[in-house]
Amino acid sequence: MTLRIRGRGIVPGRAEGEALVSHETISGWGGIDPATGTVIERRHELHGVCFTGKVLVFPGAKGSSGWAGFFQSTRLLGTAPLAMVFTTLSTKSALGAVVTRVPAISDLDADPVELIRTGDRVVVDADAGIVTVTPTPPPS
């Protein structure tokens, strides 16, 4: 059974891949290592986890104004996520998605962090503003 969440495209484009869900907000500076595409904040639920090539689902951005610059670096170093889906839009997350240049959706009609689980198959259609989620393992 698939689930559809409607939102607003932040960066246009379409991508399909596996979800990586963070229930905690993510820091750029001091929070991620662009060289390896991993979360490095100690005590973060995703500490040591790599987001490269994943649909990164998270509540929003926190911390330093260097947020977007750090995610831009993931693009320049080839470690960027495949797409972004986030609950709360701010200047950090909006600019971050823009300079990472991956399909991104926010302003959703339901909280993606609550509905999507790590490992779910997700289609991010930012042109239409729709996130389609197929839970994994699929119901038999």
């Binding site: 977007a68 200047t91 950090k92």
Partner: peptide, 8 residues
Amino acid sequence: TNCEGTAS
């Protein structure tokens, strides 16, 4: 001001 970034 908003909390701007390097590119903005």
